[in-house]
Design a binder for these strands. Structure first.
Length: 232
DNA sequence: TGGCGCTTTCCTGATT
DNA sequence: GAATCAGGAAAGCGCC
C-alpha cells in the first residue's frame, strides 16, 4: 500500500509549453508583456478596440479578463496557443479554441464572438452580458462531458485551500514548492503522476480535512472512487 | 428538510 | 500466507 501511479485527464494541453505557468509567470515576462496593473475591462484600452486589431498583449489581457470575470479555470488554457495577435485570434475556429483551451475554449469562443458583434457595448452593459454568458456557460458546461457545472464557476486558479480531494492533488501538482516531492509527474502530457510519499500525502490530506485518522488507503480509495475520470 | 455529490470507513476478493 | 491493489456498499458531511 505504498506508491502508486495515478492516471487522470489532467492538463490535456501540454504539447508546446509548460502548463504549470501561472498568470504571474506569464505577465512577468516583460519582453512580451510588460508588467501592468490589473485593470477592469472598462478602463482597458483593448476593450475599445476591435479584437482584430488587438496586439498579443491585448489578447492576453482579454484572457485574463475572461478568467477573472467569468471564473474560467486558467489551468484548462494552453497559453502558448494564445501567443498570437488579435487578427489571428479572430481567425481561430471554435474547434481550435477548444483545442487550445479545452473545456473553456467553447466559452472563450462565444465571448470573443460576442465582443466582435457587440463591440464596446459588450463591456458597457455588464448585467446583460453576464446573464447571456451565464446562460451560455450553464448550457455549455452541461453538455461538456467530464466536468461538473459547478466546476465551471466555482474554482478558478490554483488554490491550496481547495476542499475537494482532486483539487488538493491538482494543486499539489501545480505547486512544486508545496509538493516537497510528494507527487511527481510520470508523463505530464498524458496526465500520469506518481505518488512518491504516500504517507505524507495522506497526512497532508488529513491535516486539510482535520482528520487525524486519514491513511493513504482511505485517500487512494477516494481517488479511485471519484477522481480518476475527472477533467482537471 | 430532502436531495445530491464527495469523502470516509469497512469490507471482500483478486493479484503479486 | 502476507502485502498490496481494486472496488462495493453504506454512512457521514456539507452544500443548495
Amino acid at each position: 500500500m505504498l506508491d502508486s501511479v495515478t492516471h487522470s485527464t489532467f492538463l490535456p494541453n501540454t504539447s508546446f509549453c509548460d502548463p504549470l505557468m501561472s498568470w504571474t509567470d506569464l505577465f512577468s515576462n516583460e519582453e512580451y508583456y510588460p508588467a501592468f496593473e490589473h485593470q477592469t475591462a472598462c478602463d482597458s484600452y483593448w476593450t475599445s478596440v476591435h479584437p482584430e486589431y488587438w496586439t498579443k498583449r491585448h489578447v492576453w489581457e482579454w484572457l485574463q479578463f475572461c478568467c477573472d470575470q467569468y471564473k474560467l479555470d486558467a489551468n484548462c488554457i494552453s497559453f502558448c496557443h494564445f501567443n498570437i495577435s488579435g487578427l489571428q485570434l479572430c481567425g481561430m475556429t471554435q474547434e481550435e479554441f477548444m483545442e487550445a483551451a479545452g473545456v473553456c475554449g467553447e466559452y472563450l469562443y462565444f465571448i470573443l464572438q460576442s465582443i466582435r458583434s457587440q463591440g464596446y457595448s459588450f463591456f458597457n452593459d455588464p448585467d446583460e452580458t453576464k446573464a447571456t454568458l451565464k446562460d451560455y456557460a450553464d448550457s455549455s458546461c452541461l453538455k461538456t462531458s467530464g466536468i461538473k457545472s459547478q466546476d465551471c464557476h466555482s474554482h478558478s486558479r490554483t488554490s491550496l485551500q481547495s476542499s475537494h480531494l482532486w483539487e488538493f492533488v491538482r494543486d499539489l501538482l501545480l505547486s512544486p514548492e508545496e509538493n516537497c516531492g510528494i507527487l511527481e509527474w510520470e508523463d505530464r502530457e498524458q496526465g500520469i503522476f506518481r505518488v512518491v510519499k504516500s504517507e505524507a500525502l495522506a497526512k497532508m490530506w488529513g491535516q486539510r480535512k482535520k482528520n487525524d485518522r486519514m491513511t493513504y488507503e482511505k485517500l487512494s480509495r477516494a481517488l479511485r472512487g471519484g477522481g480518476n475520470d475527472l477533467l482537471w
